[in-house]
Design a protein around this nucleic acid. Structure first.
Lengths: 344, 344
DNA sequence: ACGATCCCATAAACCGATTTAGTAAATCGG
DNA sequence: CCGATTTACTAAATCGGTTTATGGGATCGT
């Protein structure tokens, strides 16, 4: 049983290979990384021995000495179990993953550990970070550039000195609100995204979408909207519906900042005997794939999530190569009208 | 601008802190890891200096010398963009994440790089691996125990010398098939999961589910089912529907091995003018959250995905602590009857 | 006053790779 | 045949931490 002793496996190191092949560590290293610097015969012998011994370079050692780990970190502002309940994140990862795979990079998920995102950041051995939904004054940002690692911010505020990838949240929200208003709705409710982590403030995304809704509503002279905060889950959306005013006070249209919340509202409303869209119009945000086959299919603001991921990853990789990159223009959002909205 | 020189950031190392505080590297290390071994005064001074300089221990260096990285790897058998299109994976990650966060571990996604999962495994600096859907003879398994790192196999074959976490695939599949048969269906189609990566063989999961379907069908004396292979995506499911025999030959019931494929079938069937379930009954597998609010809601085999993730993570962590763990009994699957099935 | 204990702090070894600088032998030019 | 390259390989430094073994000084018991 090579490499094991009484069931305790012991890693084969470069030194083991070197001595077994009767060469120096340098030679072994060259065999893998600079084969042309070795003679034909030695090269083959070393590679042979390495293979027989099952040698694999220790990733941490390699990372230390090469100053790169081949990994990029994804900074997740909340617990994985809540964040991954939203298909939005899956889609973003699809985009990130596509580009990472092209560049032989793996993806490290970095959620707050022990309540602290900063701590988790330090622990992570990565060549760059992609952060999701960080507020402009988040402590995590300080840590990020204290360690001087490239970072790209997704869904953040443009203030920081890192490239920021955003979509046109405000424009999308305006289009959504205008859509309801044009259908004749005057009593609207807004379901706001929850603040992440301990920060009291709304996320940058929530702020921009809220501004979009409000601007459309105000310029139409409609009533000030009722607002509720709800997480991005079906259950949270359902709770939000429950907390809406009842009877004559009930808004005829709901503007949700996430499809998940919108779906929750719809499902709770249907359970309460309301017909969608006849009795209540609901418009979501994100256009996750599932939005197309809910019952009824969801009218929502489309944002190019996968493309957003790709773009962020590309920028980060540029940045990791030392190139200076600046924030691209916000990606377009478009209103997709399906069947969850109609005249009141 | 501390730590930077002409815009080139330079990491603050333990040696910098040591000399700035007028102590040895050891003292600095102790300040963070063994504070009780330092005098009150020195401790405070060192921590103060470290904070002022913005010192953060280099994760790779730490990992190298402590022989642990604080990360567990998730072996993904296909490209991230295809795997994360299936909500199944999101749910699994929720389960894994829950336990990992409890133990201050981060999660590294390891898909095949450059076509090779083995290569990606070597590159990954992790303390343990969780693999998804690996066949019993996959080369990746060899690499896995060549480097002697604990691993837990999810949705695999029980053969290997690693703990395996499975659900009762066969039982669930049997229940699904029996359900259709009891409704009176005699002409059935099965949509098989695709093989992962280059291996020609079906995944262990597919094999078990197929066995379940077949056993129920055969023992009922129904006709041999038509089988199609389709990926776990809506589009693939739709294509599978298109490839089904038409007219009188068309099966009256479809057994899909994934909810995503089932949803694709339903949606393609509806576009073709069929009513679900009146004209075609469809049963899925997995019971992803979306299955509850499709149109119509999906009859499917429920498996406890999040719990499966939790269990796998717990076992891996046990294993990482050096304890010997053996495979738990397969988790229960249950048929959830909604509205995508009825009498033919 | 003297050896035994503690308390603090450090020097040096170690983790496992890459890389720089350099050496001995073979090859080359003339 | 002699100096200049080239080829093939290696010793030692380096990456940035942790840990072991050790030493000096203060405190203690007697």
């Amino acid at each position: 049983m090579p490499g094991a002793w009484l069931g305790v496996p012991v890693r084969v190191t470069i030194a083991d290979v070197a001595s077994a092949a009767g060469v120096s560590k340098t030679a072994v290293s060259f065999a893998f990384n600079n084969p042309e610097r070795l003679g034909q015969a030695t090269l083959e012998r070393v590679l042979g021995v390495a293979h027989d011994l099952g040698y694999t370079p220790h990733p941490a050692a390699r990372a230390l000495s090469m100053r790169r780990s081949g990994t990029i970190g994804v900074l997740i502002p909340q617990r994985l179990s809540t964040v991954f309940a939203n298909p939005f994140v899956s889609e973003l990862i699809q985009g990130l993953g596509e580009i990472c795979e092209e560049h032989d990079l793996t993806l490290l998920l970095v959620p707050p550990l022990d309540g602290s995102l900063e701590g988790a950041i330090r622990q992570a051995s990565v060549d760059g970070f992609i952060s999701l939904g960080l507020g402009p004054h988040d402590r995590a940002l300080e840590v990020l550039d204290a360690i001087g690692i490239p970072a790209v911010l997704v869904d953040s505020e443009s203030a920081a000195d890192h490239p920021v990838v955003n979509v046109d949240d405000q424009g999308g929200a305006e289009a959504a609100a205008r859509h309801l208003i044009e259908l004749g709705h005057r009593e609207l409710a807004i379901i706001v995204l929850p603040p992440t982590r301990s920060q009291a403030a709304n996320t940058p995304t929530a702020v921009r979408r809220l501004a979009g809704y409000r601007s459309a509503i105000e310029s139409a002279g409609a009533a000030a909207p009722h607002t509720v905060t709800a997480g991005t889950s079906i259950a949270a959306g359902a709770r939000a519906f429950e907390s809406l005013p009842r009877g004559k006070q009930r808004p005829s249209g709901v503007l949700a900042m996430s499809d998940m919340a919108a779906i929750g509202v719809i499902s709770a409303a249907q359970s309460a005997g309301l017909r969608i869209p006849e009795d209540l119009s609901v418009v979501g945000f994100d256009d996750i794939p599932a939005a197309a086959w809910t019952n009824p299919p969801l009218t929502t603001v489309h944002q190019p999530i996968v493309e957003k991921g790709r773009l962020a990853a590309r920028l980060l990789i540029q940045s990791m190569k030392g190139k200076a990159v600046d924030s691209p223009a916000p990606l377009k959002t478009t209103l997709v009208i399906r069947n969850s909205t109609s005249t009141p």
